[in-house]
Design a protein around this nucleic acid. Sequence first.
DNA 1: CCACTATACTTGACATTCCAAAGTGCTTCA
DNA 2: TGAAGCACTTTGGAATGTCAAGTATAGTGG
Lengths: 126, 126
Amino acid sequence: MIPVEHEFCPVHEAIQVLQEKWVLHIVRSLLEGPRGFNDLSRSVGGCNPATLAQRLDRLCDIGVVHKEVQSVMPPRTLYDLTPAGHELQDVITAIDHWATAYLRPGREPSHPVCQGALPDGAVRLT
Amino acid sequence: MIPVEHEFCPVHEAIQVLQEKWVLHIVRSLLEGPRGFNDLSRSVGGCNPATLAQRLDRLCDIGVVHKEVQSVMPPRTLYDLTPAGHELQDVITAIDHWATAYLRPGREPSHPVCQGALPDGAVRLT
DNA sequence: CCACTATACTTGACATTCCAAAGTGCTTCA
DNA sequence: TGAAGCACTTTGGAATGTCAAGTATAGTGG
């Protein structure tokens, strides 16, 4: 049940964090292993560095991501998930299951090529 | 594993949809049962009508939400989840588990009042 | 019967957020 | 020697989200 206004609701807070643009993508990438900034940027796909830096800062503050600066000049940094971050695996997995079951590409998906059979009630993207 | 660029990745698409502002909140509200527009707006909490209308349109197109207009004037509408929408319960549940385990309110959370014990690696909001 | 609330939105002006592009100083590889 | 990679930051414009007000009609309380 959703708590009434003015009560603290963990789920509400979690959604606030996870719905920020790129956050889920970032977590998903980091679940595959620690990465540097540019590497992460590529594997996330399409996030500009300004936004990415801001998201990473936030995720550090929150305690989901750990940032390890190996050298400042030349710059070399590693971003990794904290234990709390790793626990988001279940969320990503749930999304994965839902997506593969119900998501179909529309006429012009952002990342073309598709395969697999579609179940009843499949969903089309636009 | 995250597919390489230019391949269709259902998870990527799902994240794109779910990360849109208010979408997860909307789904969460509708999981509790069908609602009218204003009612939904209240239970979502803080989403303005313009954005809400747009999100609902999108979710309809995608096939996650069903809109039933009962009367146009005076206006009376019901929004409900489709079967595909209901399957998002698992995603919300996963977020719920993570949130209650790892999310702590910071010094000034948006919805105050908190309770429960905090595990190792708990996360603080800002 | 009259004021008041509620419904589902839309509109237009404003605020916030996001993005693409370019640049930084230094190292490594060709 | 020169090009590319690293981790970002800065900048101005573009997209996105928000706020307030307004619409036509029915139901409710006094």
